[in-house]
């Protein structure tokens, strides 16, 4: 449904996203995960035709965002990080306005408004001015405006931001209900949330996609991305000889560190680590140190896990899963 090719976006001289390429299939629920400032919101703004890319191309159902934004906007419902609400309007008036902007009118409009009001549990506040609503209700009105016209593509930027534990569970259920009807893209910096809601995860870091895949694929990638680093007293040749008996080694790199000291970096399955150390020692070399080094992806996850940890400690009901489920 969406094809993004080599897209970059600059705000003045500052680069927000760089060289993004990915595809989203029809009916998928995809989560953009990343720290604040990773480029998630910018990516979603580009996909919703709010901003145009500095370079590269974005096509939604074959339509280009630069040449046919008008047609693409008909397909899209978008909830920005701050819901775009007019405080002086009532919920019902606001939904009518949002529906009319998207081309609904007459009986269609009434039907859709009643449906999204029910789906987002807004019936009780339909006649209340938006200025009097709580944060949770505002967020729901924000989602209701995004789905009022039954868009094929629903883009939600941080939909659970600022919600309390009960509201987070409700929001998660609501997104669950919407999954069948729409292709959904959502962003969050809370790891547990994205695991609970999405089919596929795109991890963003410093404006780039650090990794993508299902939760299991990412876990595997995370393990594979870990490098084992050895510091050994001996020569590079001797070390290479000692490790030659382990065919499962990948990306072996050996650098001289000083007189008679070499540093080796390699990738190997966790289970084989013990054999690496014994091979070095049995070859008569001095094993000075051995440790694993995190990749960029793991750094992102560690940071996210820390966030999830603090979120789950403050919201124990909503996030009972272990915070670092993805990490091995």
């Amino acid at each position: 449904m969406i094809v993004v090719e080599r897209v970059s976006k600059y705000y003045g001289a500052r680069r927000a996203v760089a060289d993004l390429s990915f595809e989203i299939r029809e009916g998928e629920c995809v989560g953009f995960l990343g720290l604040n400032g990773a480029g998630k919101s910018t990516t979603l703004r580009l996909l919703s035709c709010l901003l145009l890319p500095t370079s590269g191309s974005i096509r939604v159902r074959g339509l280009d965002v630069v040449s046919s934004p008008h047609e693409i906007r008909k397909l899209i419902g978008y909830l920005p990080d701050t819901p775009p609400l007019y405080p002086e309007m009532t919920v019902s008036e606001y939904l009518e306005f949002a529906g009319r902007l998207r081309g609904l009118s007459g009986a269609d409009l009434d039907k859709r408004r009643a449906r999204v009001s029910g789906l987002c549990s807004l019936d009780a506040v339909a006649r209340s001015p938006i200025s009097q609503l709580s944060h949770g209700y505002r967020q729901r009105v924000g989602i209701a405006q995004a789905i009022i016209h039954g868009p094929s593509l629903l883009i939600l930027d941080e939909p659970i931001q600022g919600l309390d534990p009960v509201q987070i569970v409700e929001m998660r259920n609501m997104i669950g209900e919407l999954r069948g009807e729409h292709t959904i893209l959502l962003s969050t910096h809370i790891l547990t949330e994205i695991e609970a809601t999405c089919d596929r995860i795109l991890v963003m870091h410093e404006g780039r996609i650090a990794a993508q895949g299902t939760e299991e694929e990412l876990s595997a990638k995370l393990r594979a991305d870990r490098a084992l680093v050895l510091e050994v007293r001996g020569s590079a040749e001797a070390l290479r000889g000692a490790l030659a008996g382990l065919p499962e080694l990948r990306e072996l790199r050996i650098d001289a560190q000083g007189p008679e000291i070499v540093r080796a970096s390699l990738r190997v399955d966790d289970a084989l680590r013990e054999r690496v150390s014994s091979s070095v020692v049995n070859a008569g070399l001095g094993l000075l140190s051995m440790h694993t080094e995190s990749s960029g992806l793991e750094a992102v996850f560690l940071e996210l896990s820390r966030h999830a940890g603090s979120a789950s400690s403050s919201t124990p009901d909503a996030a009972p899963e272990p915070a670092n489920q993805v990490a091995p």
Binding site: S48, C49, L50, H70, E71, R73, K74, I76, Y78, P80, T82, P83, P84, L85, Y86, A98, L101, R102, G103, Q145
Partner: peptide, 13 residues
Amino acid sequence: SGTLVLLFTSPVR
């Protein structure tokens, strides 16, 4: 207030 986003993401010229 951020409401322009609603207008700019709707099919309105």
